[in-house]
Amino acid sequence: MINQVYRLVSPRQFEVTYQDFSLQTDLIVIRPTHLSICNADQRYYTGSRGKEILATKLPMALIHEGIGKVVYDPEGEIELGTRVVIVPNMPVEDDEFIAENYLQTSKFRSSGYDGFMQDYIFVNRNRLVEIPEDMNLHVAAFTELITIAMHSLTRFELRSHQRRHAFGVWGDGNLGFIMCLLLKKKYPESKIISFGKTKYKMDRFSFVDKSYLIDEIPEDVVVDHAFECVGGLGSEFAINQAIDLIVPEGSISILGVSEYPVEVNTRMLLEKGITMIGSSRSGRADFEKTVSFYKEFPEVVDYFTTLIGEVQKVTSIQDIIEAFEKDLISSWGKTIIEWNI
C-alpha cells in the first residue's frame, strides 16, 4: 500500500512524500487521529536546533505524541477501530540493566526518524497500549508527555529515601503541572509545593498545597525532595534554588532539557549529600503505568483538560503550518491536532 508522509524539509516548510509498504509483515497499521505538538517539534520547525543538527535530521515527519485507531492487525488479535496510544521509542535490543529509553541503539520517532505525521503508522505490537474507550481524546493525545513524569517517578522511588513529607516542583508549565498532579495522587499525605515565576499559570495549579513565586519564598520553606521541570537556561536557577531549600540527603529529579551546560552549586550539593536523578523520555512500561493511572484516578483526566490549549483540525499542509504557528504564540497548554489529512 502507498503511504503519504508529511515531512519537514527545512524550517517552516513541509512536503508530502510517498512510501510503499507491504502488508505481508507482522506490523500493525495505525491511522493517527489526534496528535500533540512538543517543544522538541517546535525546535525543528523553527530551525532553532542549528544548521548542523538539522542537516542530519531532515527531512523528517514531526510529532511523537499521539493516538490512533487500529486499521489492520495481521494476527487478528486487536479489534479494528481500537484506540491506542503509540510508543515513539523503538528499541532494537534488550539490556539487563539499561532501560529501553536509555539504550543508545534505540530509535525515537520525530528525532532522526519519521514521527506520526503520516497517513498510516506501521508499528510493532509492543509499541501500542490501548486507552480507555471513554478517554478524552485531546488529553490522550499528549499521553507521551505524561509518561515522562511517570517515568521520573519510577526512578525517584528506586533511588530516594522514604521521608516524603514535602515535595517541591520547579516549573509552572505543562510538565510542572503534570508532575505536581502525579505526586499529589501518588502521595496524598505529602505536601506538594509548586515554584514558578508566572502567577497566572500557577493559579491553575489548584490542587497543590502551596505555590510560591520563585522570588517570594518564605525563609522557613523546606522540601524533602525536588523535581526540576523548567529546562533551558532557567534550569540552572531552579536546580540551585532546590539545592538551597532541600533537606540533607534528599533527591533532585532533573526533567528539564537544556541545549547548553548549566552551572550547579556542587559545594552545597556535596555538603547536603543530595542525590541527583536524571531522566529522559519513557518506555512501554511507563505508558502502561500511565493508562493504569487514568483508570485508577479518572478524575485526573479532568485536571489534564486544563492543559488543552489550541485545537487545530488538519486537512492540508497549510493547516499543519497554522497549527505550529498557533502553538508558537500560545501562552499556555498543549496544541492538539485533529489529524484528518
Rank of each mutant, 00 (worst) to 15 (best):
I277C: 09
H225W: 02
Q241Y: 00
F227M: 09
E228R: 04
L269N: 05
D215L: 03
K201L: 11
K210M: 00
V247R: 15
Y303N: 13
E310S: 14
L245S: 09
K201W: 01
P298G: 07
L269D: 02
G256R: 01
E228N: 10
S292R: 09
V311A: 06
S258H: 07
G309T: 07
M268Q: 13
I252N: 04
V300M: 13
L233F: 10
R284I: 15
V291T: 08
D302R: 12
Y260L: 04
V247L: 15
S280L: 12
V257E: 08
S316I: 14
D215G: 01
V221G: 08
S253W: 02
I243F: 02
F227R: 07
S253M: 14
F207G: 10
D203A: 05
G232N: 04
F237K: 13
G273T: 11
A226W: 01
A238T: 01
I254D: 01
V257I: 15
G273F: 02
I277A: 09
R284K: 15
I214S: 12
E299Y: 05
I243G: 04
G278Y: 07
D302Y: 05
E299W: 04
K295I: 14
L269M: 14
P218R: 08
Y303T: 04
K295Q: 15
R284A: 10
K295N: 12
T290L: 07
T315C: 14
V208N: 11
D220I: 02
E288C: 08
R284M: 13
R284G: 04
D215C: 03
D203L: 05
D203M: 03
F237E: 12
D244C: 05
A226Y: 06
K210C: 00
F304H: 11
R267D: 06
E271I: 03
K272D: 10
L270E: 08
L269E: 07
F205A: 11
A285D: 07
G232H: 02
I308H: 02
C229S: 12
F207D: 09
V222N: 10
I277H: 07
E296A: 13
Y294M: 09
N240D: 10
D286R: 05
D215H: 12
Y200P: 00
I217A: 06
G256I: 02
F297C: 07
D203S: 09
T266R: 06
V301N: 05
S251W: 08
V208T: 10
V230N: 08
D209R: 08
P261Y: 02
K272F: 02
D302S: 14
K313R: 13
P218W: 02
A226H: 03
Q312F: 00
D203F: 00
T315N: 15
F205M: 14
I277W: 04
K313L: 04
